[in-house]
Amino acid sequence: MKEALSLAFQGWRGIFTLGFQSALIYRWGFFLRVFSSLLPLVVTWFVWGAVYQGKGTLGGYSWAAMMAYYFALLVLDNGFAPTEDDFQIASDIRDGKISQILLRPMNYGAYRFLLFASSRAAHLLFASVPLAVLLWFFREVFVGIPLSKTLLPAFVAFCGSAVLQFSISFMTGLLAFWLLEIGGIVFILFAVEFLAGGHVFPLDFLPEPWRTIAVSSPCGSEYWFPVSVLLGHLHGAALWHGFLLQWMWIAVAFGLAAFLWKRGLKKYTAVGG
């Protein structure tokens, strides 16, 4: 038993290392991606600055809280969000590369999750320097936030968001069992997640009932919830309710992914060597 566990651990560690190294093969592309992910902050800074001109708070957010919201989203995007996982899964299926995995004593979902985790670790490692500089430079926006109390629950919520986002990407990738091209669906889903998840603006800016609908959707658990936890906007029952909702959506996503995987495998055919 112990030996089997040790072997499995070695295998997973190998996959993690492979994913980490793969993320760094094309270094220019990698660094540019890190750089371009920081550029929207410039727009956010100026546009929201203009929105807040002469205003104290909007939608319950001060200007500093709004900036902290977008900084937290930046960290979430860089360290906890999948990038091309759905496309890679689709390519594995379309090109028949999953045949190699199916022949091995390996769970494809776990294999993809380790690759996702390792690429995020690599991304976060290199983005941490510019991120730290940015956070230090704009540190005054975090002054009113009780980070000592919110960091730990926020980390758990960020990890939950990563699992949920990965599960949704995994499901989208699995659509390649039935479709030749999934790119369009990926980007439509992406737009819906951005809007209903609070990536474009905090969901508190929406009028009711749209706010409640968006907050209760899986998209809200992906972005708005973890960021709100970090900013200290959710306490007590609301916090536990948010966690419950997030893990419920993760369970639903896992169930759906397992269903799609099972149905997809029945349809899958590999031809040639």
């Binding site: 094309y26 220019w28 592309g29 990698f30 540019l32 750089f35």
Partner: peptide, 11 residues
Amino acid sequence: WVTKAHGFIGV
């Protein structure tokens, strides 16, 4: 010069 230049598209 660069093998994979897709990062430039993001910019």
